[in-house]
Amino acid sequence: MILRAEHITKMFGGLVAVNDVSFEVEEGEIFGVIGPNGAGKTTLFNVISGVYFPEKGKLYFKDRDITRLPSFKRARLGIARTHQIVKPLNELTVLENVMVGACFGKTFANLKEAEKIAWEVLETVGLSDKADVLAGKLNVPQKKRLELARALASKPELILLDEVLAGLNPSEVSEMLKVIMKIKEQGITILMIEHLMHAIMKVSDRIMVLDYGSKIAEGTPEEVANNERVIEAYLGNPELALKLLKEGKA
């Protein structure tokens, strides 16, 4: 088990964004997190990557308590992430962006090694022809790939993907899914948030469903898809939900 969350609660003022959520992620699996807008998915990611500390609960990475570890130390341990709202380092080149990941993440490479790693990773995500372009000049799908490349360059053991498929057209989605499977083959554990049901159903080994900050279900895609609470909570419209889920399994 690579990540264990115990009773995580995160509040903003009076609002409970994540409410007593516990789960475990096995090494090498793809663990999906789904839920309606505002269910607390991104907040949960922020807690795992150390942007916020939870009010209650414990977080363990490979049995080490990381609940109150600052984010940069988590990156060093091998937790990397992408952002739903992309955060490119605009005035640095694409190559330099990726080098930051290699220099300061788990790899902790020196500049020379980092450059080599960065080229390899850019090759993997298909951005090598843009290496010398300023990151701010990329379009959104390219920026999403850059987010992924930066995270990968740190040679993480666990990678958090926050809606990497959102805003992509169908062919870009299937390309990105290939990249995700490639990452999995490298033995990296993936925790992903996704809105596109059919995509996440297809690639995830297990799925957790959040609603209003609480966990309402967990299991294989099949199990989750047939869970009535999920269907209700997620779409409020059981018929439409069934239709979408069938589509997902097909």
Partner: peptide, 22 residues
Amino acid sequence: KFGLGLFSIREDEDAAAVLGVD
């Protein structure tokens, strides 16, 4: 490498921290 870290702070401090920059 220190300089690269500084530039990443200049561009986006939160992103830099998540990428492992102290």
